[in-house]
Amino acid sequence: MKESTAAIANVATCAPRDQSRPDAVFKWLAAACALVVIVIMAGIFFELVRNSGMAFREFGFSFLTSDSWNPIAGEFGAASSIYGTLVSTGIAMIIAIPLSIIIAVYLVEVAHPKVSGLIGGAVELLAAVPSIIYGMWGLFVFAALMQTHVQPFLSRHLGALPLFQGPPMGIGVLTAGLILAFMVLPFITAITRDVLMMVPPVLKESAYGVGSTMWETVRFVSLKYGRRGIVGAVFLGFGRALGETMAVTFVIGNSHRISASLFSAGNTIASSLANEFNEASEPIYLSSLFALALVLFGITLVFQTIAHYWVARMQRLEAGDR
């Protein structure tokens, strides 16, 4: 009893502490950390613009439209790289989006929890595989498989289309697109799975409650409920496919050509940069590579903006405010 009275007296007499100072320090520290992001972003953009200046002055707008890439003649155009980037990414997304969503639905709705855990773990592991390994596997295993089985099959059955004509070389735009699909698949799958797991059980129950099958519940309620997150996942995968370098460099064939056939060799912006910086002896060559990098930066920015706008718009629509 005596002791506690003493303790109270002690508390009352000790000096008050100024709490506001550490808070102010933290505020400034946090702001400084956030500023790092802006500085890095601006720094990259500034350097790209500065170094690509010579190429843009030399070739002007035709840098974007010309598909001639001739270091010996000193002529550089980005069209074949832009084309290769968009086509390989397009192939990747066409394959990866439906596949990922179906896998995610299977993991959340269909599979036994143990099976789901096992496959889910494998998906996460797939995301952790370094891209150089995808590249090596793509070149030594997958490209051979494409050459001996997939490409002959496609030319036999769909050879009438210009997309599937030409000799089966194994490597090429189609192979690059497929490798990219495998690489983005785990990202889209993992996020879509998380999104589907967030669907409130009571919402699913009410879908089943009016007599929906599992497919109808998933298709019309769960996927719709999570569509914002899924669109986000798709764009994340898209951004990754756009900029993926190592694996694509291994299997795309690295040729600055635009060809209607998906079997033929091509290049992407990222693969050209990886391949050619070593060889760029002339200042105009180097500057053209920087210009290429700036184009990739721009493409990424455009798609990010579209994604951002789209997700925000969906949010507005859901809130019923239009």
């Binding site: 409130p200 009571v202 919402l203 009410s206 879908a207 719709k224 409920y225 859901e318």
Partner: peptide
């Protein structure tokens, strides 16, 4: 038919 504790409008 079933009605739940929380309203469950479909999206």
């Amino acid at each position: 038919g079933m009605i739940f504790q929380r309203p469950t409008p479909f999206p």
